[in-house]
């Protein structure tokens, strides 16, 4: 753990420097993705970026489709920033940070139409598969959002349907099929931060205390954007947004490469 005042981080950024010696647009190492860390989930991964560690688990259930989309299944993403993962977190219902994290990751996948929801439908208007991804932090050392986005995409790629008996309507969670989810795009969020007018990625917890503005950009492998979320109190110019998106697209490509 490092304690510095915000000005130190800001001054370093002006000189293209960071506390840990990284370049401004360089991710920490290692970036590690381990799959099948929970046998009880239909898919599970552990993602590590530097010292930030997050788990994702995917569960499936059969429910009645929504009235306005009777031939589609659904997806929901939830995040738990658990008190195990850092001294700043307390037991209790998810706070604003957890809710924002879950919603931004959720929008990136949902709005990209990354999953062919029609293929999740079993009986029109009656039965469809619904996917839930739970993101649970193990160690928050900064940039949870990118780690969570990476974990969510990794778990969507990894998950398989559980065995299902259409006649009885029973899901046998203990028996897994080899059928993967109908994933047709690979959206990933990348968060770009502005400090001293400079653009940085993959902030540590200490650096997160010093940013002026941030923009999370979710994009698919063709570079189509599917979610944006601005954070922080400082404004961004259109010129800055332009540069941020270029950087986010480049980094999304880099992170997607880590999944292979």
């Amino acid at each position: 753990m490092i304690i510095v005042n915000k000005e130190t981080i800001a001054q370093l950024a002006l000189q293209d420097k960071r506390l840990d010696g990284r370049g401004l647009t360089e991710y920490r190492t290692p970036i590690a993705i381990e799959t099948n860390i929970s046998k009880t989930a239909e898919g599970s991964v552990r993602v590590q970026i530097g010292q930030t560690i997050i788990l994702a688990g995917l569960k499936m259930a059969i429910e009645k489709p929504y009235n306005d989309t009777p031939d589609e299944g659904g997806i929901m993403i939830n995040a738990e920033l658990v008190p195990l993962s850092g001294p700043q977190y307390e037991p209790g219902p998810p706070g604003k940070k957890a809710v924002e994290l879950a919603r931004v990751v959720d929008r990136g996948i949902r709005e990209a139409k990354a999953i062919d929801m029609k293929k999740l439908c079993l009986v029109q208007g009656e039965k469809a598969w619904f996917i839930t991804i739970d993101l649970v932090t193990l160690n928050d050392a900064g940039n949870l959002l990118d780690a969570a986005g990476l974990a969510a995409l990794a778990v969507l790629k990894e998950a398989v349907f559980p065995a299902y008996e259409p006649h009885t309507g029973v899901i046998d969670y203990k028996t897994k099929t080899d059928q993967h989810l109908p994933l047709i795009k690979e959206p990933l969020p990348v968060t770009v931060y502005k400090i001293s007018g400079q653009l940085l990625v993959d902030l540590t917890s200490q650096e997160e205390d010093a940013f002026e503005a941030r923009l999370t950009v979710a994009s698919d492998e063709k570079g189509i954007l599917s979610a944006l979320q601005k954070g922080g109190e400082a404004p961004l110019s259109i010129e800055e947004i332009d540069r941020i998106i270029d950087l986010a697209l480049e980094k999304a490509k880099f992170l997607r490469g880590q999944l292979k």
Partner: peptide, 8 residues
Amino acid sequence: LLGGRIIK
């Protein structure tokens, strides 16, 4: 203490 960094 002015400037610099503190590590734990």
